[in-house]
Amino acid sequence: MDTVDERAPCAGEMRPHATIFVARVTAHNRLPLDHSVRSLGVVDFLVEGLRKGGADREGAPDALFTLGAYVGEVLVRRAGAVWVDFDAAQRAYFGQPVGVRMPDGRVWDPLGKVVNRFEVGGPGKSLQIFYLMLHGRARRRPEERGVRSPMPRPAAV
């Protein structure tokens, strides 16, 4: 029988959690956490700092969870993902209660990706590179990226 931790967050709590974290961190440290893909490099730097500072996974669960919430929120805002509550099989597989579903239907575990980055470390586990190589991202039209289409659209008749 699957037992659910009463303190486990639900998908609806993830955006507010990430928003509070960004407001707190940017107010005190002026870190460029603006939900951009580039800001994931800052998260890589923060996770690496926790590792080099001697923190262990048991000593840094809140920080890792919060950074994972931020990474997930970048996926939501930039890649078209949505926060989802994992079902029992997904919780068992990912070891997390929530994750994100991409536009193509795949689910990803940003909380676990941050933990993995912390435990393994190194550029091969970069969260920024994870995003750039991520399957299932929503494709943005050239106009949404600030790029003009090479051919003008025909005028309405």
Rank of each mutant, 00 (worst) to 15 (best):
D56Q: 02
P9D: 12
A18T: 00
R106H: 14
D104Y: 10
V82N: 11
V120K: 05
V37N: 00
G41S: 13
V22I: 11
G59H: 05
A69P: 04
V76S: 13
V25G: 01
I20C: 09
L67V: 09
K52E: 05
E73F: 04
D87N: 15
R139V: 11
D87C: 10
L50V: 02
D56H: 06
V84W: 01
R24T: 11
V84N: 04
A92H: 13
F21W: 03
V47N: 01
E58V: 05
E13K: 05
R140T: 06
A11D: 07
A63F: 01
W83Y: 08
E48S: 03
P16L: 00
I20Y: 12
Y70K: 00
T3W: 15
Q128Y: 01
F45S: 14
K113L: 04
V4P: 06
D34H: 10
P123V: 13
P150E: 12
E119Y: 03
A81I: 07
D104N: 15
P152E: 05
M133V: 06
G49Q: 11
H135S: 11
V42P: 06
F86T: 03
G80R: 12
R78N: 09
L134R: 13
L67Y: 08
A138G: 11
R78A: 08
R139H: 07
G59R: 02
V147N: 01
W108Y: 12
T66R: 10
V22K: 03
R106D: 14
A18S: 10
A23T: 09
R38P: 03
L40G: 07
A155L: 09
S149R: 15
A18G: 04
A63Q: 06
G124A: 04
V25S: 09
F65L: 11
G53W: 04
D2H: 14
G49S: 15
P97Q: 07
V107F: 10
F45C: 08
L31T: 10
P154C: 02
P61A: 08
T26L: 06
I129W: 02
H35W: 15
